[in-house]
Every structure is written in structure tokens, then in C-alpha cells.
């Protein structure tokens, strides 16, 4: 049986107390939300903690609230099931529900939280392995070693951002509130991430992600597709999240396209987004944008499937997302996902 190492466990009742506990020794303290990421990481010993602070009892972090301006404030500790099941949210942002329901399996969604999914540690098949396995290859750069086994000649770590909610919420223009013992700030979600497998979050270790703000959909339409081997349990090997706003002439007023699972952060498809801007949202422009989206991704060999094929799949999956938003008939075999 895989077992956890021992640690001091704290269950603060409110945010201030949690922030204080975290501030005491942020480098050796870890926050736990749903536990679906941290506990396996500790069991495998590629993460360590002397203290673990559970946010379970911090009531203010739970729940979905619709605000007067039509936007939503989602507590970081809201379970993925609760996020997906929230009717007003699902009605406003069906693609977000879809993204959340594509995370792992339904049972896991009862445990995992939205905040946890946004802060999900970057993943790599050389890293998410047991202690003994990692000893046999030599610890990698993300741990204490010198080498990134994915790209041994490279100076950086290439672990991937495998969060499904992240690219979707980035496309939706979400922002997050970060609270620490010394204050708080609210930043765009896109600013939370950076393309570095180790320092993948700009959040300071003493900060707690407390809330996610999602603007109202208004005239925007979204879609989310995810590629993975199986319809459940698996992390993605590619996800595509898109949000498009059209004007009255079906011209694209704004286009947001993000890829998941192909880099260490939710990857903006800059050229594809620019190509759509101001154009008629039709098959021709969708096809062109899909081709350009592929340029944003350069997956490496650290997930299931071949990276070349994953790269190739960006195009049809982006096309599928844009066609879904445009209400065009699908030409692709949709994955048999649990959503």
C-alpha cells in the first residue's frame, strides 16, 4: 500500500488563520484542498511537506455566487462536482461545466476543487512516478536533479499544465483573488501562469488562491474539447478552449483560444486569435485559424501518445471547437468523454 509520510496537519477555521499558518514557513508548508493532487504527490515523495494546511473548514471558500453584474464568484474550495452542477453557472457558461466534467472521473470530481485544479502541479511522465522509479532514472530537474529527461539538452523543465479548467477560464477572461497574511490581490488568470514547468505559477508560496471570478457570457459563446486516451480518469494530452464574441454581422469582435496540456501553462493561440479578429466567423476563417493554432503548440514526449500526433491533433480539435461555437456540423469523431 502506498502510504503518506508523516506531517503536521492543520485545519484552520478561517482564511486569516490559514494565511497565518502558511506564512509561518511557506517553503515547507503545503495547502491541501481536495487532496487529489497533493496526496498522490506526497505518497510518491516527489513533493514534501512538514506542515499541511487543509482549507476544508474555511467556509468562505466554498460555493458559487452569481453577482449583480452577471459575473460569478466561485470559491476555490468548491468541488468540481459542485461547479459543474451549479445551474446558473452551467446555463451561462456550458463550456466551463463541460471542461470541469472532463476532469479525471466523476468520483474524483466529488473531491477535487476548482482552486486545486487551477493550481494543479505540472505533470510529466518522468516526474509523476514512485520514489524508487525516480531513483532509477536519477531525479529530474523539477525535483532536485540537473536534467530535464524530456529534453536533456534543454535548460528548463518541460512538465505540462494538465488543468482542464485553466485554459477554459483563461478563454473566459477569469481572474483570481490571492490572499496572504500580508494582503491580497486580484489578477487575471492568465497572469497566474508562466511557461515554466517548475515555477508554473506566479502565486507566491504564502498566497492562497481564494476565489475565481468569471465575467458574464454576454454575447460570447464558448466550447471545450479534450483529447485523452480514455473517456474518464485520464489527464488530457491536448485540450482546446475557445470563446468567441460576434457582432451583428457575424464578424468576430473578440476571440480567445487557449490550449491545455501542450506546454507548462495554458497556451494562448495568439496568431489564431489575431487571424479571426474582425473576420466573418465562417468555415474558411475557422480552417485558417485552426492551422495557425498548431503553431502555438510544441508538445514533447512526456504524456501518453506521440508528441507529433498530439501536435497534429491541435488543428482538428481547434477546428472542432470553433465549429461548435459557430453552430456548424461536426466532422470529427467526438471523444466518448464522461461529459
Amino acid at each position: 500500500m502506498m502510504r503518506l509520510p508523516s506531517f503536521r496537519f492543520h485545519r484552520p477555521q478561517n482564511l486569516a488563520e490559514a494565511a497565518r499558518l502558511l506564512a509561518a514557513s511557506p517553503q515547507t508548508t503545503r495547502l491541501v484542498a481536495g487532496g487529489t493532487d497533493l496526496w498522490p504527490n506526497l505518497k510518491r515523495r516527489h513533493q514534501q511537506a512538514e506542515d499541511v494546511v487543509s482549507l476544508a473548514l474555511v467556509r468562505e471558500l466554498h460555493g458559487v455566487e452569481r453577482r449583480a453584474d452577471g459575473s460569478f464568484a466561485i470559491g476555490a474550495m468548491t468541488t468540481l462536482s459542485a461547479v459543474a452542477a451549479d445551474r446558473p453557472l452551467a446555463a451561462e457558461h456550458p463550456a466551463l461545466s463541460r471542461a470541469v466534467r472532463s476532469i479525471s472521473s466523476p468520483v474524483l470530481q466529488n473531491m477535487g476543487t476548482l482552486g486545486g485544479n487551477l493550481c494543479l502541479d505540472t505533470r510529466c511522465t518522468y516526474y509523476n512516478q514512485n520514489e524508487e522509479w525516480r531513483r532509477s532514472i536519477g531525479y529530474c530537474k523539477k525535483e532536485v536533479g540537473e536534467t530535464c529527461w524530456v529534453a536533456p539538452g534543454s535548460p528548463r523543465c518541460w512538465a505540462i499544465s494538465a488543468s482542464d479548467s485553466a485554459p477554459m477560464l483563461c478563454a473566459l477572461g477569469a481572474s483570481v483573488r490571492l490572499v496572504s497574511a500580508s494582503g491580497e490581490r486580484t489578477i487575471p488568470l492568465t497572469a497566474l501562469y508562466q511557461d515554466d514547468g517548475i515555477a508554473y505559477l506566479t502565486k507566491r508560496p504564502d498566497e492562497i488562491l481564494t476565489q475565481v471570478f468569471v465575467p458574464a457570457a454576454a454575447d460570447r459563446h464558448s466550447a471545450f474539447w479534450k483529447l485523452r486516451r480514455r473517456g474518464s480518469i485520464d489527464f488530457g494530452v491536448l485540450s482546446v478552449a475557445g470563446t468567441i464574441a460576434l457582432d451583428a454581422q457575424r464578424r468576430v469582435r473578440s476571440a480567445q483560444l487557449f490550449l491545455g496540456c501542450v506546454a507548462s501553462f495554458p497556451t494562448p493561440c495568439t496568431e489564431a486569435m489575431e487571424s479571426l479578429q474582425g473576420q466573418i466567423f465562417d468555415e474558411e476563417h475557422i480552417t485558417r485559424a485552426a492551422v495557425l493554432a498548431r503553431k502555438a503548440a510544441s508538445p514533447l514526449s512526456n504524456t501518453d501518445f506521440l508528441p507529433q500526433w498530439r501536435s497534429k491533433m491541435v488543428e482538428p480539435y481547434t477546428e472542432a471547437v470553433l465549429r461548435e461555437i459557430a453552430g456548424l456540423p461536426q466532422q470529427r469523431l467526438a471523444p466518448a468523454h464522461a461529459f
Binding site: 512516478q129 522509479w133 473517456g231 474518464s232 480518469i233 468523454h337 464522461a338
Partner: peptide, 13 residues
């Protein structure tokens, strides 16, 4: 060597 990455079909396949 894990249940996650050694792929075996779920109900959905």
C-alpha cells in the same frame, strides 16, 4: 508502472 498510465479500458470504451 501505474493504473493511470498503463491504460486499461473504462466503462466508456
Amino acid at each position: 508502472p501505474s493504473m493511470l498510465e498503463y491504460k486499461s479500458p473504462t466503462f466508456l470504451e
